[in-house]
Design a protein around this nucleic acid. Structure first.
Length: 256
DNA sequence: GGTCGCCTGGTA
DNA sequence: TACCAGGCGACC
């Protein structure tokens, strides 16, 4: 998401919206004609990201809020070009740049608001910011029941972690996804906080400058590696379901 | 906390 | 044909 913010800052900031188009019923519901008309002629002044939420600050005090959900992403094209197969919405800018919201599952959302408070839910600290500390994390985890992995997906605890990076961080911190959240002692919380930062920093670096690894090697340490040997101890990686989501972990070196 | 629904596509 | 999918809000 941070990579998306930087891309928008580069491609869209300072430019003016000529038109916003939609071609999927879901997006059409989010963006009725009145909302779309309200965007025309507005300058994009600043791109803000909070967790996985994108906020485009527009001239005149309007906000365009975008959330990718599972499979959304921006691509950049030129006005007038044929749209890609999974284009769900697009923004044409005054210099001919076109931002295309591509989303095969069409779960993304986009809406026009006056204030951030109208769209943003309660969000925890930014994992790469100063407020994401072991103390804050420990306080959040202490009043929680249930296992640590679903807790990490709660955006009120820390904003922006998803299913993949939650699994990756727990693997790095050697913590079992089934460990009760409130049972983690200070040392392990500190390790977890460091692991979350590490995983996200590396993911961002990888997106910003893709290394030329061979395409077959997974870029993940545990995610999507069921049955494959743990990269640390070689025990087979296990897949379980928690809160309706897949969790991958090493039953040997990730301890409760 | 868990489960379901939203949507559609890729894969076994 | 069934199952799975990087999110999340509504529901129990």
């Amino acid at each position: 998401m941070e990579a998306a913010r930087r891309m928008l800052a580069r491609e869209a900031c300072g430019k003016t919206i000529v038109e916003l188009g939609v071609r999927h019923p879901t997006l059409r519901r989010c963006l009725p004609p009145r909302g779309r008309r309200a965007l025309r002629g507005r300058r994009i002044e600043r791109i803000e990201r909070r967790g996985k939420h994108q906020l485009m600050h527009l001239s005149g005090g309007l906000l365009l809020h975008v959330h990718f959900r599972m499979t959304g992403d921006w691509t950049v094209g030129r006005a007038g070009e044929p749209l890609p197969r999974f284009a769900r919405a697009w923004i044409d800018l005054d210099d001919g740049t076109r931002l295309v919201l591509e989303d095969p599952r069409a779960l993304s959302s986009m809406s026009v608001r006056a204030t951030a408070a109208e769209v943003l839910p309660r969000l925890g600290p930014e994992p790469l910011g100063d407020e994401f500390t072991a103390a804050a994390m420990a306080a959040g985890l202490a009043r929680r029941r249930g296992p640590i992995k679903p807790a990490l997906l709660d955006q009120r605890l820390v904003a922006g972690l998803g299913n993949i990076y939650a699994a990756e961080a727990l693997w790095l911190a050697k913590i079992s996804p089934r460990a009760p959240a409130a049972s983690l002692h200070r040392l392990r919380v500190e390790r977890l906080v460091r692991a979350v930062r590490h995983v996200l920093e590396h993911a961002l670096a990888e997106v910003m400058a893709p290394s030329s690894e061979d395409g077959t090697a997974s870029r993940f340490r545990v995610y999507d590696r069921e049955g494959l040997p743990c990269r640390r101890c070689a025990a087979p990686i296990r897949r379980i379901v928690q809160a309706g989501r897949s969790t991958y972990y090493c039953p040997r070196c990730q301890r409760a």
